[in-house]
Design a protein around this nucleic acid. Sequence first.
DNA 1: CGGCTTACCGTACAGCGTACGTCACACCGT
DNA 2: ACGGTGTGACGTACGCTGTACGGTAAGCCG
Lengths: 247, 247
Amino acid sequence: MARGTPVADLTRSIYLLWGHHPKPGRSGLTVPAIVEAGTELADAHGLAAVSMRKVAEHLGVGAMSLYGYVPGKEDLTALMTDAAYGELYDDVTAPTEAGNWREAMRFVARRNWELYERHPWLLEVRSPRPDLGPGVVGKYEAELRPLDGIGLSDVEMDSVLALILGHVADSARTHAQHVRENTGMTDVEWWDTVSPVLDQVMRGENLPVSGRVGATVGTEFQAATDPEHNFTFGLEVILDGVQARLD
Amino acid sequence: MARGTPVADLTRSIYLLWGHHPKPGRSGLTVPAIVEAGTELADAHGLAAVSMRKVAEHLGVGAMSLYGYVPGKEDLTALMTDAAYGELYDDVTAPTEAGNWREAMRFVARRNWELYERHPWLLEVRSPRPDLGPGVVGKYEAELRPLDGIGLSDVEMDSVLALILGHVADSARTHAQHVRENTGMTDVEWWDTVSPVLDQVMRGENLPVSGRVGATVGTEFQAATDPEHNFTFGLEVILDGVQARLD
DNA sequence: CGGCTTACCGTACAGCGTACGTCACACCGT
DNA sequence: ACGGTGTGACGTACGCTGTACGGTAAGCCG
């Protein structure tokens, strides 16, 4: 699928996101099937494992056949991303129904956290612009609603949501890197290896505070850090900060 | 340079980070020179542009010669990362001297923000474990000190710092994607293209809150979002939240 | 049944990280 | 001064990537 002018490409991409895709041909290929295949691969082996060849193979089809349905890898990733975010809430009112704004934001944060656990590759997606598909747009509406009418300006609503979602993504990112034991060794093994070498090599460094804090954190969590603790702690700090702004 | 057991590799990587590298051979190559070349390339063209071939070419040397000094690309990236974070503070006391803990944290956040502006590729680095080199360790000590003795537990100190740094990274990430006009079109061009298509395609969607907020934000910032505003706003919210915890 | 449209895909190219094996340089012992 | 040798440097090659191009063949219509 040849690339054209930037404007034409962009328009095509948006139409694609919003469900304008070609009917299945004689191989039975469809855009949703391609997206699903890509998502399965990404869930299982990370975003780097999603190559056009692998996706095609997974569908029993030649690599180049995909280009009849999807302009390229970038658009495939955008489709996967939007689909993943789209599965977050059954209904646009779900967060609102969780309770007051604080409980709603906890609900939102927890849901996003779980989404990143299910689809860690979402944290690797690096899109130059937001992928404004139906999933993302619906998510934004659902998450913004509980913040409406509690005393924040429109801009503040957007900023608060961005702050919370950013915090979730950041914690989840650390968590995902943390959990990935497949790539090498477990946390404990890693620390057991690193620790003595560090002790030797850092001899003579003057680190009174970080030395103490690092030791405490290590003892507390049996690891260099505990992303899940940081997630819940940070969330409450943020919510307290928002509350302070409301008063 | 052949890879060995995980433990040996890890040990070697840490020694490398802490300055244990081979003396220059007959080509005059050194590890710092390689790291510098990689950093220059990354600053100019992003992390993806840092290939072993390009770095070698930049140094007037064959690609494989680098492997005599650096085990592979992963370690090169780790070295670059640690060096970049190491240039953040002239002295370990710099943040502390900025004033009380709030001012110190604003100083820390701003410095990190500027670092990410200077080296946007830092936001693309995806390391399985923290790269515990001298730069990163010194940074941790410097940033932790202003939080010492203000009424937080050790674990809370670590969590608060992680929260703030995560927020900076997240804002800077959005900012960096935002600024990258080179890859295609400017913000305004993009929105002018996307907006009418979205209007058409979203006809019939029920988006009362996000529609209003999106419009307000767009008018306010002449863009879909303003990362710098989100950065300072979010930071103050977080600081307020921490203050609430201190009371 | 013939012919045309078009979906499909085999091949190819430029790029990547890096394993392997060779070459020539610099140094050292005599 | 010279020969041998250890090793730093690197050319080549492999398997992988995204995707442009052009040929093949399948399905449909007259």
